[in-house]
């Protein structure tokens, strides 16, 4: 974790209301992994007192740049769109724990809903670099919100679902998963919570439907990994990147928690944002 000045290189609106910005921040580009995020300070401290968390969308070590992808939803995100190339902003990062890909996984299924693309986009690059095959399922409301193919690596299979049927599959992206769950060794998802919840339910029934346990799970089955440890996550079939309103992003304020099946809230910024799907209490068990 470092506090660095990041210089805006390029900023463009890639989709209506959605922006892709590239920043020169070598320390973040080299030190980060897919699934991690940066906490970025807005300019107007008198009105906006909190930083904004953004997934590291891509990182290029050669040029020392990272990109962030966001939708304008308020004054903070609006402020970022007014930045000009050359402007320097203050980033804290890289933060959070990354996706953990099992060394034996050849086929990765990535599932993104809307802006959830920003959460898994970096993982596609990492997986291709490591020689893995990637299928990316993407869900959006309509064709106009579909992430452009030109911004994705050529090597991946990109399958689109839209709620209104204007492009690709007519329906939810989760309905596409059945075609790939046998092929995939591991799945990684980011998007709206209902989507993640549906995926988690699918993942629970997967082994039963397939009739086999894949990935030689007997290996290492004897020793139990500590819950929420990287080793435990690496064995999870489905890893999800969670979103929550965030204060400090370093684990100090306890604002951004999610309830876990162990009964203790875990911090999205510190223990997350990536969790094994079975770690999360999807019913939100704050029994009071």
């Amino acid at each position: 974790m470092r506090l660095v000045g990041a210089e805006l290189i390029e900023s463009r609106e890639i989709l209506p209301g959605q922006w892709l910005q590239s920043y020169h921040a070598p320390a973040l580009a080299t030190g980060s992994r897919a699934g991690q995020f940066v906490h970025v300070r807005t300019g107007d401290l008198s009105g906006l007192v909190l930083r904004r968390p953004f997934s590291i969308n891509t990182a290029d070590q050669a040029t020392g740049t990272i990109t962030i992808h966001f939708r304008t939803i308020g004054r903070g995100t609006e402020w970022f769109t007014h930045l000009r190339p050359g402007d320097t902003i203050d980033m804290l990062g890289p933060l959070g724990r990354p996706f953990e890909v099992d060394a034996r996984s050849r086929h990765l299924l990535l599932v993104a809903g809307g802006l959830g693309m920003a959460g898994v986009r970096y993982l596609a690059d990492e997986a291709i670099r490591d020689g893995r095959q990637v299928t990316l399922l993407f869900g959006a409301a309509s064709a106009r919100d579909v992430y452009p193919t030109s911004l994705l690596p050529d090597e991946i299979e990109y399958v689109v679902a839209t709620d209104d049927g204007t492009m690709g599959h007519h329906g939810f992206v989760t309905e596409l998963v059945a075609d790939y769950e046998g092929w995939a060794d591991q799945a990684f998802a980011c998007g709206p919570e209902p989507m993640l919840r549906a995926l988690a339910r699918l993942a629970v029934g997967r082994r039963g439907r397939l009739g086999v346990a894949k990935l030689g799970r007997k290996r290492g089955a004897g020793k139990a990994d500590a819950p929420s440890s990287p080793a435990a996550r690496r064995k999870a079939f489905l890893q999800v990147s969670m979103e929550q309103r965030m204060g400090c992003a370093v684990g100090a304020c306890l604002g951004c928690v999610v309830m876990t099946t162990s009964g203790t809230p875990q911090r999205v910024c510190r223990e997350g944002p990536v969790f094994g799907s079975e770690e999360i209490d999807w019913e939100g068990g704050w029994a009071r």
Binding site: C253, G255, T264, P265, W286
Partner: peptide
């Protein structure tokens, strides 16, 4: 365990 989310 604290309060339900959102918290901030």
């Amino acid at each position: 365990i604290g309060n339900p989310t959102p918290r901030v």
